[in-house]
Amino acid sequence: MTIDETAERVIPLPPERVAAYAMDWRNDAEWTQGIRRAELTREAEGGGFGVGAEVTRTAYFLGKRIDYVLRVAAHEFPRLLDMVSVAGPMPMHVTYSFDAHPRGTLARIRVRGGTDGFYRLAAPVMARKVRSSITKDLHDLERKCAGEPAG
């Protein structure tokens, strides 16, 4: 089974401000559901964070610890951050996009992935949980960008 979930939210702040926070891997644990730790484990070819960089995340999902590595496939500040898993329990593709909107920024998160083993059995629950998590992520992203504590 394949999961393909998208959430979007209009955030009343400029795209550059929202993207600067969301595209900084050091903020992952602050606004992304279940992420306990994120670490830049491989820099982009030119150094720092960009295409080819890898971030190792430790998360908890459905009561299980998950360690996975996302490689940056596209990085077009402030519009797009596209990442694919290169290590972890299941294939995953995560895309953040930030488009100008009359009321600020239209922020979107799309998560796609396959399910095997334990995750195949839990696929329907996972799809609902992913949808709920990324919806809350966008809410927390708005709060963090506005300088409020995420909740």
Rank of each mutant, 00 (worst) to 15 (best):
I3F: 05
D4K: 02
E8L: 10
P12F: 00
P12Y: 02
P12Q: 05
E16W: 07
R17G: 00
A19H: 07
A19S: 10
A19Q: 06
A20E: 10
A20H: 03
M23C: 04
M23K: 03
W25M: 02
R26Q: 14
D28W: 14
A29Y: 02
E30F: 02
Q33L: 06
Q33K: 06
R37K: 13
R37D: 13
R37E: 15
R37M: 03
E39L: 07
L40T: 05
T41F: 03
E43F: 00
A44N: 14
A44E: 14
G47W: 07
G48C: 05
G48V: 01
F49A: 01
V51Y: 10
G52I: 09
A53S: 15
T56V: 13
R57V: 06
F61Q: 13
G63R: 09
G63W: 12
G63Q: 06
K64V: 15
R65M: 13
R65H: 05
Y68D: 11
V69K: 08
V69P: 03
A74T: 12
F77D: 04
V84Q: 13
V86G: 07
A87T: 00
P91K: 10
H93C: 05
V94H: 13
T95H: 02
D99K: 05
A100N: 01
P102E: 14
R103T: 14
I109L: 15
I109N: 01
V111C: 04
R112G: 10
G114K: 12
G114R: 12
G114P: 08
V125H: 05
M126I: 15
R128I: 09
K129R: 15
R131W: 04
T135H: 12
K136L: 13
R143W: 02
A146T: 07
E148M: 08
G151M: 03
